[in-house]
Write a protein that binds this DNA or RNA. Structure first.
Lengths: 211, 211
DNA sequence: CGAGTTATTAACTGACCGGTCCACCATATG
DNA sequence: CATATGGTGGACCGGTCAGTTAATAACTCG
């Protein structure tokens, strides 16, 4: 359970009396999973100590307070997500397939566990965006980035002759993102994953060309 | 601020020593707005006392604990919402227009205030559905009801010759609901209401026939 | 009018939370 | 090996929370 690491990851120059005994990224991952499953408010510092294996002092020393720790985990999550997206978009031979995969991503997990868990950024938006301006900013930033990435893909699909030229890439990207987030949401309502998968196919057929 | 009412709304038969000094439905509305704006966890009993004008004792005497009060407010909200929906569906001359209005409902508010506020059921699903089984049940029930209502509409639109006969009404309804909830979500991210309105139009054009 | 019943109010309780602080300790350096 | 540095863990604190209780007020009905 405990996340220990002898490797020296400190960034200070000066004198280094004692290196961190934990790996910051491992801690961020553990903390992110906790926030992901339970939400921000429902996660206590005790929970964070348990999943990270660290004491309060270490947590506060390394990350500041609970909110800052959460924001770091959230940003890390978003960077990872956007990274995955970019990789998928750039590695899929036919970019239209990547767009299909993007739309259907919320139902890509066979058992539906991922669908029930939802998306940390979406969960956080619903819980905190109205009260915490930093979360709102992060949400806007992330979804604008995502829209941009998808729009690039749409433009490439147009170049490849797989999508009609008359559609605005940005606008198409927004429609796809909206549909995707709708799927994410319905997954959270506990809607049967098979039914949701069918709906994802229906939406794919209507929003993206080809069979 | 105080919600007083001399009308006797108690349901007991037996001896009625002292009637409620407040109207239960008015209190439920006030409480619902509070939960709607701040969420469940972020709403304290003090908040509930403030917006209802009642003391703790009265609140607990009439509704039980915070969670029960929340569930009552949520159910009342859902009944009202479904009522509005049914009324719109039955009063719109051409049922296809009702479907368009349903899909675009999240952006129907000019200023975008409603979009930013979101939907109480959606907010609650994100905050509580994973931890509170009653909320999850309520979510499933509500969205199944909604799907059913929309599906009826789709079938009627088919009868009126406004939609192709080959589509499954239930499946079409799910796709529309998913798209609508996607719009609700993007509204919560603070996406500009004008952009969101355009996207709503884009989705309408792709998911519903006709101009 | 008064006895009985219920609504109302505010003081109170115990638990828990986020955050601070400090004594202790592991390590790098000379 | 001695010392300085800063990581570590847990005791501790003030505040807030949901929920309880008991005294009081308001009302019905005989």
């Amino acid at each position: 359970m405990r996340v220990m690491d002898r490797s020296v990851k400190n960034c200070y120059a000066g004198h280094m009396a004692r290196p961190r005994q934990f790996d910051e990224e491992q801690v961020l991952r553990a903390v992110r999973d906790q926030f992901w499953d339970a939400g921000y408010a429902a996660t206590s510092l005790e929970d964070l100590m348990r999943v990270s294996g660290l004491g309060k002092g270490s947590l506060y020393g390394a990350f500041g307070d609970k909110r800052q720790l959460f924001l770091r985990a959230l940003r890390s999550y978003n960077e990872t997500s956007c990274g995955y997206l970019q990789e998928m978009f750039s590695s899929t031979p036919r970019v239209l397939d990547a767009l299909r995969a993007f739309l259907a991503a919320p139902v890509s997990d066979p058992g539906g566990a991922a669908a029930r868990r939802g998306c940390l950024m979406a969960n956080s938006t619903y819980e905190l965006a109205t009260t915490d301006p930093d979360v709102l900013t992060e949400a806007r930033r992330t979804y604008e980035t995502t829209t941009g990435l998808v729009a690039e893909c749409v433009a490439r699909a147009q170049d490849e002759g797989d999508m009609p030229r008359d559609a605005d890439p940005i606008e198409t990207a927004r429609a796809l993102l909206v549909a995707q987030q709708g799927l994410v949401f319905m997954g959270r309502t506990g809607l049967d994953i098979d039914k949701l998968t069918v709906t994802a196919r229906t939406l794919t057929a209507q929003l993206l060309p080809g069979a």
